[in-house]
Design a protein around this nucleic acid. Structure first.
Lengths: 287, 287
DNA sequence: ACAACGTGTGAATATATCTCACGCAATATC
DNA sequence: GATATTGCGTGAGATATATTCACACGTTGT
């Protein structure tokens, strides 16, 4: 059975409450003409006259009255069911890793808010890799090779490591103190090998828990950190950190990941993607 | 507040009952693809994920479940409200005068039914002129000058009077017996004058109640009737009646009259109009 | 590996819906 | 009575929504 559109029924219901079609149109925020057409379309679908012009106002016929009577508060029910869901419309839920959030995304948030005042980014950081298809996130930003199956991934930037330290540290040698993050312990070894150094990296090291702490330690002058260029860039630009050697690219990168299935707000995600890519190019947050 | 379309909600409801999207589509009589798009559109409007692919079937999210829960039987209510009205869809209610119905329209009904098996004509004959704008008729066929204000009238044919009688009556003279219908008593005088005769019509007359009875009386050989050509034509063709003198046109005619306002089934009425006009040209019912 | 099933997606097309400008009818106002 | 004023319906044109078809992807059996 083919149901009539909500628009038509809504028009009829509004017409019952308001004295005239014009007033009803006003309450719905559309033209009188639109309402007139809605009624006409509904009448065409049902094959019944619903509104009859008496005097200079429209009056509902018995058919229309009975329709509304039987329908009851069906429209209100629908509205009640739909409203709480719609409330979350202006929000884009993003899951990402802590370092990316605090050292890349969050510093750039003011720019996003300026360009997209209607979309609030809700950033959620987790240590574990979240299962996008089962949890209620619209997208995620992940670190890896971009080969997550069943998901669409667009590369934001490749990871590139370089040794950075407080400006008063002027060189990297076998005597230097290096800062290692437990979560990315192998970074120093990888940089060492990829940059063509021989032997092992300096043995003297400070070990911290997370990469964010490694950054803090480097800023404080505790030693030399192998940091991602994207994260170090603002500090290098401001002079709070100094690059001590070559920058080497890693095969991994940072990716914006979206799930398949019905994408509930594909257009907003698309805007986010474009913005992220443009931000990834400038490599520096505003302000 | 902008309500989502019934189609989308209906799709969601069907998806809850059926195990898979394909089955749901079957129950609604549309393609799987259509249902998929409906859901996607609904999700876009609400900005919420409603269906999530788990395994190889789609499963409703909590949001979708709660939506359906709050909405309750709203859709059923709408369907219940709409169904009884739709039942009258295949019917076109026509109000007309008795003579036109019995001597013109009804003999032609088989042809209409053959051409339009989906539309049943419900013919209602009344002596009084019905108020189309207030009563539940889709259209009317009226006799008159076609100047009914507020209504749209299309002429089917002009009225044309001629004297007819049983074939054994061979001439119209001042000695003839004329048949008069009380409802159209002046017809004989009008014909007499308009056909250029001098003096008065024959004084010897049989008076019956209606024009239909006048026709019967003429067929029975009771005298000469001043009959409308459109009504007499089939009898003239079959030889049961004979035309005894000139045919004179009257200013009145028969009109298909439709009301303004929202025309609940303009397309069907349009088909009726075309059919009536074609029938008016042939001037003879089939069979 | 391969087929069978269940889906999502994009293009092309058909419906629905909206706004705008216009004309007509019924009331108000002079 | 003439003349605004209010309330409508209608057609054209633009935009949004729905539908189908053909195709590609992932999952589940054999």
């Amino acid at each position: 059975m083919d149901l009539p559109s909500t628009r038509g029924l809504q028009a009829l219901a509004a017409l019952k409450k308001a004295p005239s079609l014009s007033k009803a149109a006003e309450t719905l925020g559309v033209t009188r003409s639109a309402l007139s057409h809605r009624i006409a379309e509904l009448e065409r679908q049902l094959g019944v006259t619903l509104v009859r012009q008496v005097g200079r106002c429209g009056k509902l016929t018995e058919d229309a009255e009975s329709l509304l009577m039987v329908m009851g508060d069906a429209l209100d029910r629908i509205e009640a069911a739909v409203t709480p869901l719609r409330r979350r419309r202006g929000q884009l839920r993003i899951s990402t890793v802590a370092t990316f959030a605090s050292h890349w995304l969050i510093p750039r948030l003011p720019d996003w808010q300026h360009l997209n005042p209607d979309v609030e980014l809700a950033i959620s950081t987790t240590t574990r890799t979240i299962d996008l298809t089962n949890e209620d996130f619209d997208c995620a930003i992940r670190h890896g090779l971009g080969d997550w199956k069943g998901l669409t991934a667009t590369r934001l930037f490749n990871e590139t490591l370089l040794p950075v330290a407080h400006p008063h540290i002027s060189e990297l040698s076998s005597n230097s103190t290096v800062i290692r993050a437990r979560s990315r312990f192998r970074d120093w070894n990888r940089w060492w090998r990829l940059s063509g150094k021989v032997g092992d990296p300096p043995g003297r090291s400070v070990v911290v828990e997370t990469r964010a702490q490694a950054m803090d330690a480097a800023l404080a002058g505790a030693g030399i950190a192998a940091m991602d260029l994207a994260y170090a860039a603002p500090h290098l630009a401001s002079g709070r950190l100094r690059a001590l050697d070559a920058t080497v690219p890693l095969p991994e990168g940072y990716y914006l990941v979206t799930k398949g299935g019905h994408k509930s707000r594909a257009d907003t995600i698309r805007r986010l993607e474009i913005w992220l890519l443009s931000q990834a190019q400038t490599n520096n947050p505003q302000g």
